[in-house]
Design a protein around this nucleic acid. Structure first.
Lengths: 215, 215
DNA sequence: CGGCAAAGTGAACAGGCGTTCAGGCGGGGA
DNA sequence: TCCCCGCCTGAACGCCTGTTCACTTTGCCG
């Protein structure tokens, strides 16, 4: 008497992984689950069930649940940094145009890939100190792009950023603005009143006003 | 032979609860822990150890860990709503002054009570749907104050908010600005380069610019 | 067709979780 | 003085977690 299952029972119905390789299916399912419910309360069983596999199979592709989180955050962050650099470098030499191009690229990305952005920005804290470091480094790099634009605009006299007590704190300003652009991913919804395009225009307008762009 | 402890050993050294009643000590410890590490990973044992008690004692003051979270979030949120209303009502009739007063009060509060604000804004999602509802209602109420100010300023001709495609979406603008002011609590640090006062001035300036305040 | 490596299964493990509960404790009123 | 009651303790409960592992299944190569 064989222990084999009778062949009539289909081996795996594969509920949610279309035809992607398993690693990609796991990544996608993890993004979705982490975004909806948060890293600590999503279990390995949840993720694997969502892509039609069982718990143990995760460990054929990732060393641990932590490594899975780091993998998806790091790749998202690296891609974001690339997008930001590219947007600025292709925007000519006017700091106002650079700022507009940056904001546009940043906001549109956070609308289009809002799930990825949500996870990358909200769940870092669960990574151990080692892994969190290069993510923070990348964030600082992005912030410094903005600081650079503001500095250049101030020197060329085409931007007039706010000052407190007669001093301009461009780093604080850059952080405040970036916070705002990042949080787009927390309340933008694809089918809502505003399109990605309109979101981008709104935020570009606000950024130019906040930075005091001369007409 | 008595089972009583010898009186030389102090009964409870009370590590972190000064002379406050236990309920307040628990609230304070919970705020601190939730802010630093997040609701799902903070255990009841952690909280109670932080105020010199043991696990079981929590349930003399709160029905569950969930109720504790709701208690501290709801009280913080209610107080915030009150502060916002008060700031606006005491600022005269000029919408620009109202906006400035609102931003000033909102930002300074998020600097001074940053731990409470952090928890109230980041950990809502762990509450069950029932409890989360009145928190969201309060948030909408606060947003509507801002929408009201912008609307009035537009009608009186002293504000000129950004428009996309010829239309002004004041609700979206209000949400975008509120996001920014709320996030102050995520990166402001008490001993840092900027004081609460300076933070408030920076954000008031940015808000007036973004809303297009006429000189 | 035989066999081998990669990939998936699901029971098992140790540890930690929120919550409960029988009992110890001490200060205030009779 | 005694007793009572609110507060606290810490062991215990059932459940769930990330991870491992022996085993089965699958698909490819010769």
């Amino acid at each position: 008497m064989s222990k084999r299952k009778i062949a009539v029972v289909e081996s795996t119905p594969a509920p949610d992984r279309d035809n992607r390789p398993p690693v990609e299916a796991i990544r996608a399912a993890a993004f979705q689950q982490f975004a909806e419910r948060g890293y600590p309360v999503v279990t390995v069983r949840d993720i694997m069930k969502a892509c039609g596999l069982t718990q143990g199979a995760l460990y054929n592709h990732f060393k641990s649940k932590d490594e899975l989180l780091h993998d998806i955050i790091a790749s998202t962050q690296a891609e974001l940094e690339r997008v930001c650099q590219q947007a600025v470098s292709g925007a000519g030499s006017d700091p106002r145009a650079k700022l507009a191009a940056f904001v546009r690229a940043y906001v549109m990305r956070h609308c289009r890939l809002r799930i990825e952005a949500l996870v990358a920005n909200r769940e870092i804290s669960w990574l151990d100190a080692e892994r969190v470091r290069d993510i923070r480094r990348s964030r600082r790099a992005i912030r410094d792009i903005v600081v650079g634009i503001l500095t250049e605009g101030l020197e060329k006299g085409v931007l007039d950023p706010p000052q407190v007590d007669g001093r301009r704190d461009l780093k604080a300003l850059a952080m405040a603005m970036l916070d705002q652009w990042t949080n787009v991913s927390m309340w933008y919804t694809p089918g809502g009143r505003m399109s990605e395009e309109q979101m981008a225009r709104l935020y570009v307008d606000m950024a130019l006003r906040a930075a005091g762009a001369k007409a």
